[in-house]
Design a protein around this nucleic acid. Structure first.
Lengths: 343, 343
DNA sequence: TCCCCCATTCAAAGCGCTTTGAAAACTGAG
DNA sequence: CTCAGTTTTCAAAGCGCTTTGAATGGGGGA
């Protein structure tokens, strides 16, 4: 049933029916009730395309996944972030749209999404250092929000991010306070902005205790379980292996633990481990007592906040830029302990 | 730039420009080239809402996430499935849309999505036993595909599923062949259809060797890491603890392993473990040698196939029902071994 | 040279909704 | 009763596209 049919059924004009349904004041209350009842009875749902055409808004927010040839990977944090966001979208009447795109044409994907009127705003996930997409979006005038930030981008933009530097600095200091000096960093891909910031925090903490960073102890790649395992095993073979490992994700941390077990080492005693914990629903850091000492920040909550900030931006395109920096908490679990005395 | 402006720039009618761009034959080749060049030059992108209104198709496929109050969880397999699907969608010019919905009104969500013309078809994920949504979709006449099946639903529908029963039967038989008799099953939520089928396979295999199933050894819940850990620890405390554990996901398997380590048991020697491996990109089952003996079936690939089947269905609504049953492979890793001799 | 036919192109209607500008129906004061 | 002022309802235009049905222009056969 469409608006025309519904209005004919009621013996009213389309105008009145439309207004009654959309809560406009210039409609007799009795009429409104009658219209609403009829709408429910006939299961009338306004066609969203027609509505969008008429209003100029699509009530859809776009996300672009660059899961292309290069990385066939879907970051698990993606799922939780999206779950947080989509929930807020729903509260405000928005739907969420995904597009998949060749790595090479991500910019184009955003442009297309917006210019063809498919979405009212977009979320940019996983920004790299000097992320070109930000300037593209900025120039296009699309409302958008970045989950993360991008060093080297000069234009102003809305973002929400964890304080990666300070949290990794604190985590590293926690380890140096325990006497560790050989501290490894198993980080995400180098060109990701968050990875740079985490490394900066790590380096800063090492500097504080005058430890010269060892390139052998700094690894970076896509943060899979296998990767955590591989790098750990590799570093344990060094002449002077690490006594502590900092890892950028819980998933890799699981791999780290596996490698330590294989080597017959005890986590928290022989080798300390700190992970960054995005508080993923399926991979919680233990129940009551945390398994890993970790820097924790819920990515799901970040998704919710991002959604809200984006919707605000769509509503008021001319408001000043908004940014939000979340501090991760440092939770102490069983994976850390004093540095072993090596003789 | 819209069609009207573009056609004015070219001194042509909207009809001709539209036809030139959409590959209709009744357009002079020279004209077509000229139009296409102008479209590129001016960055013209047809407004998808208008196009949808005119054609009656939205070129969008809907997914509904019931991530509501009850489970605040986003299954990690969701991410990989979606990544597979969205890729195929893109190939065929479709976008993907998500809606979030209260558990209570999932049916309504599908109805709304389709009736308001937002999507051309939908994917139903995670069907339960006697899944009511299937009949709703069927009645509505929406093109849809189910990832999984639903026991007790009588109407015909398209589905793609792993042969859960046979794979768990084979896995269990693999364990009984190794001499195991106390075999635990750490399964997904009982009302999920896949969980029922896996249990059926497990029970069937036990029957073959005349082992009476022990309710104490059959657990079910949302398949998190913490859950795998918790149930394992609990069962190890039994008078007659299991010598082998079958688990429905790699994530829980990680928890199982953690519990075994805590108990000082060696996996593959003291206790054998078989996991179901969805071949998630971030949680691969080892690199060359599998970590866990596992029943493996790529959920990403299932996503791709589902997408293709759905698009076929949208194209030919009257074709006979199509179904696809994937056999999981049983890969042997280091987590299984002969049953220990207990005296 | 004329006419018919095919290849091109076009004007206009229509998709289902919102919204503007105007008309109709009430109200109450005079 | 009248008439200005509200309140309520309506007809029609417009959002940007596709598609139908008709018009135009050349080319070739008679």
């Amino acid at each position: 049933m469409n608006l025309k049919e519904l209005s004919e059924t009621l013996g009213l004009s389309q105008t009145t029916v439309s207004r009654a349904l959309n809560g406009y004041p210039e409609v007799n209350e009795g009429t409104r009730v009658r219209v609403q009842a009829a709408a429910v009875k006939h299961g009338y749902r306004p066609n969203s395309r027609a509505k969008g055409l008429a209003t100029g808004r699509s009530m859809v927010i776009g996300h672009v996944i660059p899961s292309s040839s290069r990385h066939e990977m879907v970051n698990p944090i993606f799922g939780d972030f999206v779950a947080g966001a989509v929930r807020k979208y729903a509260e405000h009447g928005y739907d969420m749209m995904f597009t998949n795109v060749e790595d090479t044409s991500i910019e184009d994907a955003y442009r297309s999404l917006f210019q063809r009127g498919a979405v009212d705003g977009v979320v940019l996930q996983g920004p790299k250092v000097r992320e070109p997409r930000i300037e593209v979006l900025n120039r296009m005038g699309v409302p958008f929000i970045v989950h993360g930030r991008s060093t080297g981008v000069e234009v102003p933009y809305d973002w929400i991010d964890v304080n990666n530097k300070s949290s990794f600095q604190r985590a590293t200091r926690f380890l140096t306070d325990l006497g560790h000096r050989r501290i490894a960093l198993i980080n995400g891909l180098e060109d990701m902005d968050f990875a740079q910031r985490r490394r900066a925090g790590y380096l800063e903490a090492l500097r504080e205790v005058k430890v010269t960073p060892d390139p052998e102890l700094m690894r970076s790649a896509e943060m899979t379980e296998v990767y955590g395992h591989h790098e750990t095993r590799d570093m344990l073979r060094l002449n002077d292996p690490p006594t502590a490992i900092l890892t950028s994700s819980m998933i890799s941390a699981v791999g780290v633990r596996r490698a330590l077990h294989e080597a017959g080492l005890e986590m928290g005693k022989d080798v300390s481990v700190i992970a960054h914990d995005d508080d993923l629903s399926y991979l919680k850091n233990g129940q009551d007592v945390p398994i890993f000492t970790a820097t924790r920040s819920s990515v799901r909550q970040a998704g919710e906040m991002a959604a809200e900030m984006l919707i605000d931006r769509i509503k008021s395109p001319n408001d000043p830029v908004k940014t939000r920096l979340l501090e991760a908490e440092l939770v102490v679990g069983g994976s850390t302990g004093p540095a072993p005395n090596r003789l």
